[in-house]
């Protein structure tokens, strides 16, 4: 389901538009050679990624991110990027060395969220939350 806020536009919706472009590139692929074919295949992959990203519920992964934030006693209103930077700095300083087992589980969940969009078939069933 595409975000409802975008539903005021006339059809085709964003996913349908992307699918149209994808289908056209797919038709071209058999006639392309070497480098062009490779980049054409990359383009179909990239369109698949965008389609999955659009269809992903906006709150997916909140659970793992909230758990990460809880682990770091993050009470500030940091943006996602600020929080990730702060988390990275904390790991680099060694502040989390006592928490590495728990952190590994939470980071696997965090990374699984990205893989759900980039290549969901790659995920272990138990990580496909």
């Amino acid at each position: 389901m595409i975000w409802s806020a975008r539903m005021f536009n006339d059809p085709p919706n964003a996913s349908e538009l992307l699918l149209t472009v994808r289908e056209y590139i797919e038709q071209l692929l058999p006639d392309l050679e070497r480098q062009d074919k490779y980049h054409g295949l990359c383009c179909t992959y990239l369109l698949d990624v965008v389609m999955r990203e659009l269809e992903e519920p906006p709150n997916i992964g909140d659970h793992s991110n909230n758990a990460l934030k809880a682990l770091f006693n993050n009470e500030d209103e940091l943006s996602e990027t600020e929080f990730m930077s702060s988390l990275c700095a904390s790991i680099r300083r060694g502040d989390q060395d006592g928490n590495l087992d728990r952190l590994l589980i939470l980071l696997t969940s965090h990374v699984s969220k990205k893989v759900r969009v980039s290549n969901p078939d790659y995920l272990d069933a138990k990580d496909y939350l």
Binding site: H39, C42, L46, L104, T108, V111, S118
Partner: peptide, 26 residues
């Protein structure tokens, strides 16, 4: 600029997934 290099950006998470699963011995 290239579609392949753009794809590398989104490939990073898949490699991170491998990395964490190997460290976890899964």
């Amino acid at each position: 600029r290239s579609p392949a290099f753009a794809a590398c950006g989104r490939n990073t998470g898949i490699i991170e997934y491998d990395l964490l699963k190997i460290i976890a011995k899964e």
